[in-house]
Amino acid sequence: MKNPQLRLATALLFPIVVLAANTWMYQQQRQAGETFKFPIEGFDPRDMLSGHYLFYKVDYGISSEYGCPTSDIAASLCLRPEKRVYPTDERPTTCEVYLQGECDANTVFTAGLDRFYIPQAYAAQLESDIAQKKGEIEVSVDKRGNAAILDLLIAGKPWKEAVQD
């Protein structure tokens, strides 16, 4: 590109286009997937709040015999027909819906869904509700195993409604 004005315009548009594409991709992930709900709880009730977000543990409902091995591996959690963790490269083709994630050495499966951004004003109330095991996250899972958080539910209601009650 020899034209300096064209180079400048490209340099200015490049970040905007990348950020817009990123936003579109996340929006698609939200809309295109199938919706699932998972209960959540705190690692430690005193340490759930970190800045502007809640940090919690997702209960995927995996039975111990179908859980993670004791090693750090990339893993897939098959959600249907049978809830079971597989190493990513060993996931059977019969698995209809799955969640991409990883296992750690403590046999815990994580899929990057353990953070929810909240306004500071409602932090203490939401923290207390989750400590009482009233919390769930609503997640959209697409065909490639990517998951996007849709909402935080408190006693089955969207958190925005729950804090008004």
């Binding site: 490049f14 990348v18 953070r115 951004y117 996007a148």
Partner: peptide
């Protein structure tokens, strides 16, 4: 803001790496 709206669970250095790549062309001006 995108991370906050879509509740993206990423590391701070991954966010800054993305920023570094997209902002380099204009920084060179």
């Amino acid at each position: 803001l995108i991370a906050q709206v879509y509740h993206i669970n990423g590391r701070w250095y991954h966010a800054i790496m993305l920023w570094s790549v997209i902002s380099l062309p204009i920084v060179l001006f």
